[in-house]
Every structure is written in structure tokens, then in C-alpha cells.
Simulated scan of single mutants.
Amino acid sequence: MNEALEDYEIHDISHVEKDLLEPLGTKSKFWYSSNGDEFLFKSVESNNGIRFGEDWAEKIACELAHLLGLPHAHYELATYNNKRGVITKNFISERGEQLMLGNELLETFIVSEDGNNPNIQYVDDVYKIMTNTVINKPIGFSSLKEIKSASEFFVGYLMFDALISNQDRHNENWGTIITVKGIKHLAPSYDHGASLARNISDEVRHNRLTSNDRGQQVTQFVLKAKSWFLNRETRSRIKLLDAFNEYALMEQEAAKSWLKILKELDDEKVYHLISRVPEVLMSQVSKDFTFKLIQCNKSNLLALNF
């Protein structure tokens, strides 16, 4: 797996003019126009400091989603006035289309059950929204075997979260696109920067890769990753694997199809897409750890029975 490949380009957009600051989230973001299209620049800088690794995590997740055929926003590495980040083209492609976020879709459930707590989401509530409200698959993406509806695609999103240890699919990180005719479609998967354990140090990565202590190894580390779905009784966040498994029990045929796609995922291709991140952004130990993390998560997903 040592074949050298061309690094991903880091696009310098220092010349662009900001059109509009993006208010959602904690990161420094702004919209700009290029050749008639709208793009969003997301910096690794935030109100709480610099989040190193969010750029390469977003890029790797994007390329991995492409390999799986999972609907996703496309991301490129970028800099703006020496600030690291990523750029992504607006996936609202038609004038008059609107993006409605999960928190708005969940509003009735949230108010009735939890006193308007903005972070509340339960797996079965989201399933009801996908099957009764959103209904339609993402715009521009073809149906797959046993994967045709919004719900059948969304269970793939949850599998993907478990694969990349994405702990940030809160209720503003999924939604529906409403067309000019009022038809709702599942939005593509987006905002994966808080994945792949991008926030741990290289020292910790090295120790987990080389440790003889089973409890410190990557195989155990990945099992700790939590979703933003809650347990109804304890109100605590459930694990990523449990969130996928719980939804998969309601969409078994689609979940099995997604797992078949995952099983056929070529490990060498995964390693290569990780290796293409420029060394100035991601060290070799980070790449080795990231590959191992994905391998462990893949193994855990394929071991599920439902």
C-alpha cells in the first residue's frame, strides 16, 4: 500500500470577496461566489480556538463517501489568508429551493417530549420524519438496490457515521431540501469535520497503534464514539454503533444493502485516499491511525446481526 499518489490540492481563495457570513455553528465560515456558483469556506478556526484536523477529516470523509456511493456534500482543502479550512459548493442548486434542518423537522417531537431542548433527537422520531415527512431520496443521486427512499438512504448516513467515528450528527447536521414545488428530499450528508478522531494528538495515536495493552488499542478506542441520538430513559447519548443498529432494525433490507457495499469497499483504495492528504496538513502517524480506525469500525459494523 505504498504506491505514491498525487496530493490533494489546497486551494488558495485569499482573492475572493466574502458575500455573507454563515451564522450556524461555531467555526469561522463565509459564503463567496465563483463562476456563478456559491461556495462556503469553513475555517478550522472557531470561537474556541483552532481545531486542527477538521480540514483533512472533512476531505477524507468526502472521498470515502464517494467510494461508498453515499450522497454527500463535496469538499476541497483550502486556505484563506493563511487560514486552513475547506470549501464546499452549495448543494441547494435551484433558485427557490430551501434547506430545512433536523431541529425544525423535530420541533413537534422536541416540544411535546422534552420542553424544547434544542439537542434532543431519538432514533425512532427521526425514522418517523424520514418515512412520513421527508420521504424522497436525495436530489441527483440514483436509487440503489433496496435503497430508494429518504429513510433507506439515511440509514446509510448512520452507517457512515459509525465508519468514520463522526460524533457530530446533531439535529442541525441533517435535513431536507424542499423544492420550488414543495416536494421534500433528504439532503446529502454534510459536515463531517468532527470525525476520524481528528482532535487527538499524534503521541496518543502512536501509543494506541503500538500498545500491547488491549484497552489502549484502536480496536477498543473506536467503541467509545457516541452519537447525538439519545436513550429515552437515561437521556444520555448512545454509541454510534447502537444508533445505526437501532435504525437498521427498522430498515433492515436497506441496512443490509449498505453493509454489503461496505464489505466490498477496497482497503487499498481507502488507504490511498488517506495518503493523498498533504503532509503539511496530516502526519504519517495520523494517516496510519486514521486507516486503522476505519478498518476497526468497518469490522465492527460487519459483525452486526439484525
Rank of each mutant, 00 (worst) to 15 (best):
H206D: 13
D7S: 15
H72Q: 12
N199R: 04
E76V: 09
L158W: 06
R232F: 11
Q121C: 04
G102N: 04
I238L: 04
H11P: 04
S283H: 00
S43Q: 05
S28E: 14
W174D: 07
G215K: 11
Y247Q: 12
F154H: 03
R51N: 15
L144A: 08
M1R: 12
G140T: 01
T108N: 14
L24Y: 11
Y190F: 15
G102Y: 01
E6V: 12
F141R: 06
E54S: 15
V180Y: 06
E94W: 04
N212V: 08
K292E: 15
N166Y: 01
F153N: 09
D7I: 10
D7F: 02
L77W: 02
N305R: 13
I183W: 05
K263T: 08
L186T: 02
D288I: 12
N90K: 04
C296N: 05
Y127Q: 12
S165C: 14
A255H: 06
E246I: 09
S143C: 13
M100G: 09
K260F: 09
N231H: 11
Y190G: 09
S46E: 07
L21W: 09
A225F: 09
D19T: 15
Q167R: 10
N81A: 08
H72T: 15
R214E: 15
K287F: 14
I135L: 06
G69N: 04
V222E: 03
A73P: 08
E264I: 00
I50L: 11
R235Q: 10
P118N: 08
F141P: 06
A255C: 07
V180M: 06
H72L: 07
V180K: 15
L24V: 14
I92P: 05
F229A: 07
A162Y: 01
L223H: 03
D7E: 15
E94M: 09
V111R: 15
K18R: 12
Y190H: 06
Y271I: 09
I110F: 05
E3D: 13
L40I: 12
L106V: 08
A65R: 01
T219C: 08
V44Y: 08
S46Q: 10
N231K: 07
L163C: 06
I129L: 12
N166V: 00
G53K: 04
E45S: 12
L293P: 05
L259E: 00
T131K: 02
N171H: 00
D168L: 08
F306A: 07
N117A: 10
E17D: 13
S257T: 05
E22I: 14
N90T: 05
N305L: 10
I178G: 01
H72R: 13
N47C: 10
G115H: 06
M1T: 11
I294M: 01
L21R: 13
V222H: 02
G102M: 08
S28D: 14
R205A: 00
E9A: 14
F41W: 01
D114Y: 15
R84T: 14
H206R: 14
L273C: 04
E233L: 14
V44G: 07
F109M: 08
Y157G: 07
G53A: 00
G96S: 12
G49I: 00
Q220H: 15
F306L: 14
